[in-house]
């Protein structure tokens, strides 16, 4: 019989981990329970992190914001600080899973799962999130790029948990964008996704730009070259096309039942082309009334 521990404090949690070193932690369970059902791992004991209040919520420290790892996606979408400062993250969260999954799943869970398709990861890469990892008596801060090691692999040491996500407030971008290409409009695993933030000067010159792609490689893909051809230049189809070509070179997609590698590669670039229209604020609603 598998045991499930439901600690309510971090202290309690670390005691449980110490006594049950082989147990598996989960925070929401929207990935873990699926794997459990399909027999992808045997009956280790489980530790739920969901009831530990210290691991929940958003704290605003002025320049920095800390997100408790067990904050649900729904809670983050509704949070005024996150809405105000990190729209790109909110946009990604809105298309993550379904209402049920967003109510159960947590940002920490999404990070630790380290899926190439994890919807929070491309925005967190752009925002250069740092992760606060804790054991009973230690704490360290690791950048998200260094934390994610590969598909399903992360930098957590045995007995260590992801406690908080640190985000630095960034200058107000003109555009914070997340587009996910899935097989349907909800409950979809991303085939490819693009997160983008841009600053465009009054004269129409791109002053700052960052891109990251999900489901386009073993981990989130970034592409300095694509950003470089745009920075300092006016927004134009030609420059976006150039960036798109570089992006297609940078991605390392796989083929699976959802899409071919070639499709992922092409669309990784194509999604950049959307940006001009978005900056012009065109074409969002397609209801029949318009």
């Amino acid at each position: 019989m598998r045991k499930v521990f439901i600690p309510e404090t971090q202290a309690e949690l670390f005691d449980i981990i110490a006594c049950n070193p082989k147990s598996r932690m989960f925070a929401g369970g929207t990935d873990l329970l699926v794997k459990l059902r399909s027999g992808q791992f045997d009956s280790d004991d489980l530790v739920s992190l969901e009831r530990i209040d210290e691991l929940k919520g958003v704290e605003d420290y002025g320049d920095e914001v800390f997100i408790g790892a067990c904050t649900t996606h729904s809670a983050l979408i509704a949070d005024p600080v996150i809405q105000m400062h990190f729209p790109v993250l909110v946009k990604a969260l809105r298309v993550l899973g379904s209402p049920q999954i967003r109510n159960m799943g947590t940002i920490g869970g999404n990070i630790v799962t380290a899926s190439p398709a994890g919807d929070t990861l491309p925005p967190l890469y752009l925002l250069e999130a740092d992760l606060e990892l804790k054991t009973k008596d230690s704490s360290r801060l690791v950048g998200i790029k260094d934390f994610i090691k590969g598909p399903g692999r992360n930098d957590l040491a045995p007995g260590e948990i992801l406690a908080r996500v640190r985000l630095r407030k960034c200058p107000a971008y003109n555009l914070q964008h997340y587009e996910k290409v899935g097989q349907r409009n909800s409950l979809a695993i991303s085939i490819v996704s693009l997160a983008a933030v841009l600053n465009v000067s009054d004269k129409g010159i791109i002053t700052e730009v960052r891109f990251s792609w999900g489901s386009a490689g073993p981990t989130v893909i970034t592409c300095k070259e694509a950003e470089a051809v745009l920075a300092g230049r006016p927004v134009s189809n030609e420059s976006l096309e150039k960036a798109a070509r570089l992006a297609r070179k940078a991605v390392k997609p796989i083929a699976d039942v959802r899409a071919s590698a070639e499709y992922r590669r092409q669309v990784s670039g194509n999604l950049i082309l959307r940006i001009q229209g978005l900056l012009n604020g065109s074409g969002d609603s397609i209801q029949f009334a318009d």
């Binding site: 379904s98 349907r184 909800s186 409950l187 979809a188 695993i189 039942v257 029949f288």
Partner: peptide, 29 residues
């Protein structure tokens, strides 16, 4: 979207995570 994919008789879409059916969000008026 619905496509029950097989490869030499073996099923490549064995569950609802791989065999995609529409949700309410995919339905038009």
């Amino acid at each position: 979207m619905e496509d029950f994919v097989t490869e030499r008789g073996f099923v490549n879409t064995p569950d609802l995570a791989t065999y995609i059916i529409p949700t309410a969000m995919d339905m038009p008026d």
